[in-house]
Design a protein around this nucleic acid. Structure first.
Lengths: 295, 295
DNA sequence: CGATCATGATACCGAAAGGGTATGAATGAA
DNA sequence: TTCATTCATACCCTTTCGGTATCATGATCG
């Protein structure tokens, strides 16, 4: 059976046109090379070289086979390299799901760093409403997701990568719009807009907990999943909200953001399935500052 | 060393995900397959499959290696087939030089037949002034050439493939334009236009010989290499000419072609270098009706 | 024109690798 | 728990590979 070894020998021979020197280059002696080439010609049923006493010359078929062999050897070696690269997470695909909010905070930098250090990994980024993210990671739809901390989820590992304080978002003509040093009890009787507890439980908990510290139980009569939506609702005068500070970067007309005294904080986490065997996941987590524990 | 055999084994295994069935498909028993895969993984330094009791599953790196391996195997097998095809003259390049006149006679049909029976041979056709053709074949510029018979040329084989009578080309207002049964002696005192003897010796010989049979020695005061040029000169009233009959197909205003009694004939030959080892040359010659003698 | 040299082929030997059979270990199913 | 399935391991034999020694051939040179 013809194998890659004979092709390597043939290419070396075709490039030197000299059995002795080709053998030397291959770190073998001349007779095995002669025999391998003879075997190759026999199995192909094709004469590849004309042997003359002083030098050998490729036949037409030999020239063709040389070109093809070079291409085969290159792709063969590449295949082996690729397997090692893929195994090391340096080649392949990585699919990341994230809540919209992350696009304004950690996602851009993290993605840029990972892509720079792993140029051969195809990265798929996909925005998803937060409550679908955990399931999507569990089913394998995503290799990892970036979201507000959902609390412990069975089958998922999570690691905090970012923490930011909440701030108050009010309409520009709201009485609190000009106030400094706003505290929890200043929000008594305000109509609060917040994300549903099932979508972002820790965020909701932070909002509610802050109010309780101010001595009252907040009433939330309007809910929206996305922080950006909540800000828009504030702009429309439908209420006030406690939102992550990074939303200030969004320019929204008629909305004023104010710092809070003893502001609660909200955490971004990366979540992943510990059983996920995509080798590109580990370097991604490393880039996020996470050293996953060995299984 | 990793070789093509292990790749074949791996692809079979990856496609069945079952050592026993893959081994069966490869016509070997299961233990050698296990060992070869283990060797492959060891040499790559990469785990390609997760072995579970009930079924195996490819790792990420394994999936990548499967894709690459399929491509490598395909190109490997293709390289072997190509060598055989090239050796048989069914794949490669063939370069044919020809005098312009052949484009009106044998070249189109011959080329069409050869290309139809050898679709994978790249054919290069190149028009050349006739006296350069023999040298171009000798130097290897062309694998073969089609031309008027140049007589014996050292180092070239030649074989006739077409013979056509010459006819008379005269201006439409020439006295001979209306004559039938024109004979050689009717051309006495005419100004003849012909190709130089060094360009097309047999053609020139045919013209001169015909005149001698009519009892006179022709005077040629105007020469041109190409038959088409000669016909144009006839159209301009610069003289008359004996040209191959197939030039009648050219529509040239003011030129009339007349049959000759006992018309001389001119031969097209294919010439080639017997030492030319391009395998595509033999089938080309066969297509031209030539069975080259074995060297 | 014969001696010499360079080159590739051939013969033979020991080592390595491949495939086969027998069997063991692990794990999911009954 | 027992059984069946599946892959890994152990061991043997054959094939193949590479190495050394040597031969055949043809070009070069005195």
């Amino acid at each position: 059976m013809i194998d890659i070894l004979q092709m390597r020998y043939f290419v070396a021979l075709a490039e030197t046109l000299h059995f002795g020197r080709a053998a030397e280059r291959l770190h073998i002696s001349q007779p095995p090379l002669s025999r391998q080439i003879a075997n190759l010609e026999k199995e192909l049923g094709v004469r590849l070289l004309e042997r003359h006493t002083r030098q050998a010359a490729l036949t037409y078929a030999g020239r063709r086979f040389l070109e093809d062999s070079r291409a085969v050897l290159a792709s063969f070696d590449q295949a082996c390299r690729n397997a090692r690269l893929a195994d090391g997470g340096d080649l392949g695909e990585l699919s990341i799901g994230f809540m919209m909010h992350a696009a304004h905070t950690v996602l851009p930098g993290l993605t840029r760093r990972f892509m720079a250090s792993h140029p051969q990994v195809q990265v798929e980024l996909r925005e998803v409403v937060p409550n679908a993210l955990a399931d999507a990671v569990l089913t394998g739809r995503f290799d990892a997701a970036i979201m507000f901390n959902p609390g412990p989820v069975r089958g998922l590992d999570a690691h905090a990568i970012f923490r930011e304080p909440l701030c108050l978002a009010v309409h520009a003509r709201h009485p609190l719009a000009g106030r400094e040093g706003i505290q929890a009890h200043d929000l008594v009787d305000e109509r609060l807009i917040a994300a549903p507890a099932d979508v972002a439980p820790t965020l909701r908990e932070a909002v509610v907990g802050f109010c309780r510290l101010g001595g009252f139980e907040p009433t939330v009569r309007l809910e929206a999943q996305l922080q950006q939506t909540i800000v828009s609702l504030v702009a429309e005068g439908l209420g006030i909200a406690l939102v992550p500070q990074s939303l200030r970067k969004m320019g929204v007309a008629d909305v004023v953001f104010r710092d809070l005294q003893e502001a609660p904080t909200i955490e971004h986490v990366v979540v992943w399935r510990p059983g996920n065997l995509n080798p590109a996941l580990r370097p991604f987590l490393s880039e996020a500052g996470i050293v996953p524990r060995q299984k």
